[in-house]
Write a protein that binds this DNA or RNA. Structure first.
Lengths: 222, 222
DNA sequence: TCACACTGGATCGTATACGATTTCGTACAT
DNA sequence: ATGTACGAAATCGTATACGATCCAGTGTGA
């Protein structure tokens, strides 16, 4: 009766995914099959499979006959990922809107309250975590699993980037919280889908623009 | 000097991808590692890797300790895929719009002319192929590789579905050609991105609605 | 000093082999 | 006749082993 004994391949996948998402493995870090296999106490075959799966998600870059490295993020890639996410998350939010219950909205509003409160003594990590939860609360009801999956992948990717090199764009956090409230207003008023989509997309685009205006290298997802 | 000697895993992937896209392998068909390996003259390990890659693309469904089958398409999945594609392709088209040259537009216009001409003696396969090429011509210049990749995946998936069970929705082809021309008008006039995106998305949504109105099971991408 | 061929080690890619798991047919009991 | 227990066949999952490929460092000739 093996309780939590998933397949080795699965465990390798989860381990690497967690480490990359948490930023323990910096971009460019070389993933050697043998080393990881030894660490996990298994052979290279399952590890190889896990790495190919991570490649499909864009978390690692793989070069035939050479090996895999944790996917780095130059400015251009970050821009493209954010742009994609703005489109997808906007659509997801609009689709989720009619399905949001009063409790969902109340929870989101409370989370945004926490966000605003946390502005006093600004802790980037805490703010980011609350921010993630707020957005998840808003789009998680999206009835289209494909779109939801794409949103998750986008966030995972951004989290991986952000964790390895966090940056704080001055003033953006405050503006972000205000935009959250505006979005919630639209959702509570059961505004037209197009309007909600536009607001959700603009929220993300604004972050991107703030980042570009700041001219900084490190990414943010606030 | 290895000319076309890709890795076995790669060749297995390409073979299966081609067969599924072409509809030779019907949804639900069971993919047995040993059988495919024997057919390719290699061991099961590379085949396994190829199948996991196809799984990540959504072309095959995989169940641990049981095996992989060609991903089927119930009505619901088709709907979700079309909806996702409408969002992504709309964005891709809008982003590509400013980069389209006069030649690009002329080529797209010519392709749509071919489409209209082919309406006389309607051949579903030829129409579909021209339709694919028309849309590719319109969104292929999209500067965001992520979004472009997502569009390609969406089309691949729909093609796989369509090939296995094609259906013709009466009247839709004609309307589709007209919508193409309208879209081209917008592109040539360098209309605002939002307007282009809306038109491109609506074009796909219209197909979806026509399909739903027809109440038929088999999918279409016209 | 520089360019280039060579060699050694590290790592990847795959074949083979075998244990683990599922599935399905069959026999048995009710 | 129906449901259940058992067993065998099929298939998956992974360990081990070995050839193939790449990279770095070394030596040789101009």
């Amino acid at each position: 009766m093996p309780a939590a004994t998933a397949s080795k391949s699965q465990r390798a996948y989860e381990l690497l995914h967690r480490r990359i998402s948490a930023g323990e493995l910096v971009p460019g870090y070389r993933l050697v099959l043998g080393t990881i296999a030894a660490e996990l106490g298994c052979s290279t075959v399952p590890v190889r499979e896990a790495i190919r799966r991570l490649e499909a998600e864009g978390l690692v870059a793989f070069e035939p006959n050479v090996g895999a490295t944790v996917a780095g993020v130059d400015t251009e890639l970050y821009l493209h990922t954010m742009q994609t996410l703005s489109v997808i998350e906007g659509a997801a939010t609009a689709l989720a809107a009619p399905l949001l219950t009063a409790e969902d909205l109340a929870r989101a509003r409370a989370l945004n309250g926490d966000l605003r409160a946390s502005l006093a003594d600004f802790d980037p990590r805490r703010f980011t975590e609350l921010n993630d939860r707020f957005h998840a609360a808003v789009y998680e009801r999206c009835p289209n699993p494909h779109i939801l999956d794409l949103v998750h992948r986008g966030w995972t990717r951004l989290n991986a980037l952000r964790a390895s090199s966090f940056s704080h764009i001055p003033g953006r956090a405050l503006q972000s919280v205000a935009e959250h409230d505006a979005l919630l207003d639209l959702l509570e008023a059961r505004a037209p889908a197009a309007e909600i989509e536009r607001a959700a997309r603009a929220h993300r685009t604004n972050t991107l623009n703030a980042y570009l205006a700041a001219g900084g290298h490190p990414p943010s997802a606030i």
